[in-house]
């Protein structure tokens, strides 16, 4: 349910379009591409591997999008605080 790991397609077997060599930080394993026959990956694509089968292509765009959302956490709040801070200073300057 469970253990599925991202790996990069290194090469498609010349005699079998359903078989690919996938690399996971230097570890290499043959993976079956039969479940991706509607959207065949090519060398350089990243796929999610489970029990020796590629389950899905990994979308770089969505991954970056997610990272950006996470990196911005707290920044909206911080930006609002800062703006409020400027407002107060102006009023104080006028008053003194």
């Amino acid at each position: 349910m469970c253990l599925a790991i991202p790996g990069k397609i290194v090469e498609i077997a010349p005699d079998n379009p359903n078989s690919a060599l996938v690399d996971v930080v230097g570890m290499r394993r043959r993976v079956d591409l039969g479940l991706l026959e509607d959207d065949r990956p090519v060398p350089g694509d990243w796929v999610l591997i489970h029990v020796g089968f590629a389950m899905s292509k990994i979308s770089e765009v969505d991954a970056l999008d997610q990272m950006r959302t996470l990196e911005m956490l707290g920044e909206c709040e911080a930006a609002v605080q800062e703006v409020r801070g400027y407002g107060l200073e102006e009023i104080e300057d006028k008053a003194s």
């Binding site: 790991i5 996971v24 930080v25 230097g26 570890m27 394993r29 591997i49």
Partner: peptide
């Protein structure tokens, strides 16, 4: 080492 990590994750 990376390769050990990769094997362990897999």
């Amino acid at each position: 080492h990376d390769a050990v990590r990769g094997a362990c994750e897999l």
